[in-house]
């Protein structure tokens, strides 16, 4: 099982397990609905490999690997 959102294969569901706290860039991701316990899925990668598009709380967001690598996940 991959350990971060950046490694999650396309189309697989996962649950956010942990995110480092006190990082301003991650606080905004939390405010946009990605908090520990949230179900997420990578829907696709951009043609050039980055960013990734993820499905969370019924809507689509995209972010770069840099941020996604901070988000630890477990199997859904």
């Amino acid at each position: 099982m991959p350990s971060t959102l950046a490694e999650l294969p396309i189309g697989t569901d996962a649950i956010v397990q942990a995110m480092p706290t006190g990082r301003s860039c991650l606080t905004r991701l939390r405010e946009m609905g990605i908090v520990p316990g949230t179900r997420v899925r990578v829907t696709r990668r951009a043609p050039l490999g980055e960013p990734i598009e993820i499905s969370v709380r019924g809507s689509q967001l995209s972010m770069r690997n840099h941020e996604a690598a901070f988000i630890a996940i477990t199997a859904a």
């Binding site: 301003s24 905004r28 991701l29 946009m32 809507s59 689509q60 995209s62 972010m63 941020e67």
Partner: peptide, 10 residues
């Protein structure tokens, strides 16, 4: 002031 690139895909 690095802020992450978060893009909504409406």
């Amino acid at each position: 002031e690095a802020s992450p690139m978060i893009l909504e895909m409406p």
